[in-house]
Design a protein around this nucleic acid. Structure first.
Length: 451
RNA sequence: GCGGGUAUCGUACAAUGGCUUCGUAUGCCAGCCUUCCAAGCUGGAGAUGAGAGUUCGAUUCUCUCUACCCGCACCA
């Protein structure tokens, strides 16, 4: 079932009214990046703050963390990202199917049956790599070794004598290589022990984090739905392995509350029980929570039972115990994990799609963003009924100043006539408009319009 | 990454191998007017994605690049 709104309509509105722009637009853009304008950043922050309130501040069993984007590369080795992301991929030149070169017989394409259609395998890694600190390079020749600290390898020029008696040998410092995190989850797992040491919370408890993650997607798509830089809101909920199902169901319920808080209609959200043979190797159960986006039904957030996969990996790789010792003296164990993982951009898209409506009034189209009030970027617009009556304008300024100081997200609007202002505010989802008229001057009352 | 499409004021559309380089609507800015749900008038700013080629002359034709949209693949 496709919603009536097209992705292009949403993108057009987002651009026109200052929600979301193409990243680096003046230079022709950068694929898979998007920038937020004044209204967009307000909406985004409202959504993220709502999440933090619902899932951290309002709950007794939740703790917040905020880990660094750059992490020791051992994190990604232990989690399996380094290995699984450097698989060589081959592509069939006939049917364009792609396969892991080490998993198939490359003499014949399994999809179309053609022979000899595979080219050279290419390494493809979805993690953005980077170098932490200067790169150290060693130049070796006969009887001579020069060590150089190079801040930018492209600037390094080594003159090689014609005798070729010198060789340049780059000793890339493996410790200096790192990645922009492809998920925020590992920043939580690596701090599990720290939080236990500081607070020793009763099990079950959860850690929550919001932050940027980066994936070098093959093809970013569908407006902000799949981009190369995005924001995640993730929870790792640590449980006694015997009680994981209980926790799973609890979070399932909390996720539906989240949908309600975002104002997403129930008939547009769906649960997809991921079939056993599609599950990631570490997961015993996963539910994809989907939404009917303009481009089709697609994943809005996911919840996975990750067992003790991550903590056990860290325990093995670091040599540090990740066991939790229950306070009742029963034997220690490595907790299991329920992971609800939310995408901020996907939530924004869903909210915009759900809120976007077009009314027909006397044959005129009226665009209204029916945002939940607590998400609206502008809570209230203040207008003088007439722009050319100084007494109205000054009174309105006074009211505006009071509200602005109190609530912040208040907009001054004196452009055109009153009807136009209402329309304009409708289009950005402003719930309240306050108009100062001549009665205000007489009896200090104002007109409050509820969208 | 493959195939198809698109790229013109902020937005949505129009037009053109030249002539004074581009029209409309809306939005925006200034002024006038206007006593509550897109009234009107006057004036103004604002665009051919980037680069190369063909040509006397390119926004228009060709090529390359970039970005977005549609389909496929991918989504650990």
């Amino acid at each position: 079932m496709k919603p009536e709104v097209s992705l292009e309509e949403i993108a057009s509105l987002a651009k026109r009214r200052g929600f979301i722009y193409q990243g680096s637009e003046v230079y022709g853009g950068l694929s898979g990046t998007w920038d937020y304008g004044p209204l967009g950043v307000a909406l985004k922050r409202n959504i993220m703050q709502l999440w933090w309130k619902m899932f951290v501040d309002d709950l007794d069993d939740m703790y917040g963390v905020d880990a660094a984007i750059l992490m020791n590369q051992k994190v990604w080795q232990a989690s399996g990202h380094t290995e699984t992301f450097t698989d060589p991929l081959v592509e069939c030149s006939n049917c364009h199917a792609r396969f892991r070169a080490d998993k198939i017989d490359t003499s014949k394409c399994p999809t179309c049956g053609q022979s000899g259609t595979f080219g050279e395998p290419r390494q493809f890694n979805m993690m953005f790599d980077t170098t932490v600190g200067p790169t150290s390079t060693t130049i070796k020749g006969e009887g001579l070794t020069v060590k150089a600290i190079v801040y930018n390898e492209k600037d390094l020029k080594v003159e090689v004598p014609p005798t070729n008696q010198f060789n340049t040998v780059k000793l890339s410092d493996q410790n200096a290589t790192s990645y922009l995190r492809p998920e925020t989850a590992q920043g939580i797992f690596t701090n599990f022990k720290n939080v236990v040491d500081s607070f020793y919370p009763d099990l079950p408890f959860g850690l929550a984090q919001q932050g940027k993650a980066f994936r070098n997607e093959i093809s970013p798509r569908d407006f902000v739905f799949r981009s190369r830089e995005f924001e995640q809101m993730e929870i790792e909920y640590f449980v006694d392995p015997a009680k994981w199902e209980e926790a799973f169901e609890m979070w399932r319920g909390r996720i539906h509350e989240w949908f309600k808080a975002l104002g997403l209609p129930e008939d547009k959200t769906h649960e997809l029980e991921v079939p056993a043979d599609d599950l990631a190797h570490y997961s015993k159960r996963t539910i994809d929570f989907e939404f009917d986006f303009p481009h089709g039904r697609d994943e809005l957030l996911g919840m996975a039972y990750r067992t003790d996969f991550d903590l056990t990996n860290i325990q093995k790789a670091s040599g540090k115990s990740m066991e939790y010792r229950p306070k009742d003296g029963s034997p220690a164990f490595v907790p299991h994990v329920i992971e609800p993982s939310f995408g901020v951009e996907r939530a924004i898209m869903a909210v915009l799609v759900a809120a976007y409506t077009v009314d027909e009034i006397n044959g005129e189209k009226r665009h209204v963003l029916k945002l939940p009030k607590h998400l609206a970027p502008v809570k209230c617009a203040v207008s003088p009924l007439l722009k050319n009556k100084p007494e109205l304008v000054s009174k309105a300024k006074e009211v505006y100043g009071m509200l602005k100081k109190e609530f912040g997200a208040v907009m001054w609007d004196d452009n055109g006539n009153i009807g136009k202002r209402y329309r304009r505010q409708d289009e950005i989802g402003t719930p309240y408009c306050i108009t100062i008229d001549f009665d205000t001057l007489d009896d200090n009352t104002v007109t409050v319009r509820d969208r």
